[in-house]
């Protein structure tokens, strides 16, 4: 049986993992401003001429600023993974420490009825698509389950399986088929 390589769908933007996923941003060594995706040369702060940036992992949790879903299959280069297409949710998430908002798909199976502004979410890794060579991974946001919503743990003892989270810990959604 062939085991395909599992790799990030884009290199250097995030660290994928079954237990721990983190977005990789940058922090200007001169003024301290954060960027995602990471800057490699100039600093976006107009009053800073810094060109050196420290690579940093961004906060792995944030709160939903706004959200929506895609009910129609996006055009290429989006790669559909199901036929027929299944809608998926997208959230813009505010990171408190970095004071920026980052987009991500919500973990598969999330219905927008399950979401509200201000809701706490956490990064997970899922498959974006597979081709002949590899399984391409992407970051997604996953609602933080109330039972484990202690803001402290960076080192969680139990591995987070997004699929288990979705089916096990979230209230059943009255939801629409496929969303």
């Amino acid at each position: 049986m062939d085991i395909k390589t599992r790799q990030a769908a884009i290199e250097g933007w995030f660290i994928p993992g079954d237990d721990r996923t983190a977005l990789v941003g940058s922090r200007c060594r001169e003024c301290g401003t954060y960027s995602f995706p990471k800057e490699t040369f100039f600093c976006k702060n107009p009053s800073c001429t810094g060109t050196e940036h420290e690579q940093v992992e961004l906060s792995r949790r944030g709160r939903i600023w706004s959200f929506t879903n895609n009910c129609y299959q996006p055009p290429a280069p989006y790669v559909a993974t199901t036929d027929p297409f299944e809608p998926f949710a997208v959230a813009a998430v505010e990171l408190a420490e970095e004071r920026l908002v980052v987009l991500g798909q919500m973990v598969s199976g999330t219905s927008i009825e399950d979401l509200h502004a201000g809701m706490e979410v956490e990064l997970v890794t899922e498959t974006l698509f597979e081709d002949d060579e590899a399984v391409h991974l992407i970051w997604k946001w996953c609602p933080v389950c109330p039972a484990i919503s202690d803001p402290a743990p960076m080192q969680q003892s139990s591995p987070e399986d997004p699929t288990a989270n979705q089916s096990g810990d979230l209230p059943a959604s009255p939801g629409r088929a496929g969303s």
Partner: peptide, 20 residues
């Protein structure tokens, strides 16, 4: 990249503002 990695179409962004 936004289409490839997020499937974020133009209406995705419009909808984020509308929801807001």
């Amino acid at each position: 990249l936004r289409f490839r990695l997020l499937g974020a179409t133009n209406p995705t962004y419009f909808a984020l503002y509308a929801r807001r």
